[in-house]
């Protein structure tokens, strides 16, 4: 996977992520082909979206694990309107439940949106959706 150089803001099409100290590990992971899930270095709890502090054990020491990229569709929608360029309607968006147990919002690619189903097994695929922006998307693993 290669990602081209990041274009200036005015040339970006989708809303790009806002990156700060709390979520930089995630986007750094995308850049090197890893889907990272925050893992507390003290109590080893996995959590997504990440937080600067572990509400479970009180640690300020967040780490991460690299996800297997295997999951199932927990829920999904098919976006029709209002027209949201550069997205091309209809397109499907899903909440994917990863094998590690956390969930993440993503897109389902590789099948018509009308064929996505709750419980469908999916696998991670990194896609450069526009120049400079790579996202972790998911493709069904069974037809």
């Amino acid at each position: 996977m290669t990602t081209t150089a990041k274009p200036p803001v005015e040339e970006r099409k989708r809303p790009w992520p806002a990156v700060n100290e709390d979520n930089r590990f995630f986007w750094d992971g995308i850049a090197v082909g890893e889907l990272r899930i925050q893992k507390c270095n003290e109590c080893e709890t996995l959590i997504h979206p990440p937080r600067p502090h572990c509400a479970g054990c009180g640690s300020f020491d967040p780490g991460y694990v690299v996800s297997s990229g295997i999951g199932t569709v927990y829920s999904y929608v098919v976006f029709h309107a209002p027209l949201a360029p550069p997205f091309v309607e209809p397109y499907s968006i899903a909440v994917v439940e990863l094998a590690e147990g956390t969930r993440i919002v993503s897109q389902i690619i590789g099948i018509p949106p009308s064929e996505v189903r709750v419980g469908m097994p999916v696998a991670l695929e990194f896609v450069e959706v526009e120049p400079g922006l790579t996202l972790p998307l998911f493709r069904p693993t069974e037809s």
Binding site: V9, R14, W16, A18, N20, D22, F79, Y91, I93, V105
Partner: peptide, 22 residues
Amino acid sequence: QPTAADAEQVAMSWLLPFGLVT
């Protein structure tokens, strides 16, 4: 595009790039 990397815009970043925008 996000105008700052504050907590609200970071939260939106789990949604908006994927097209979950409304």
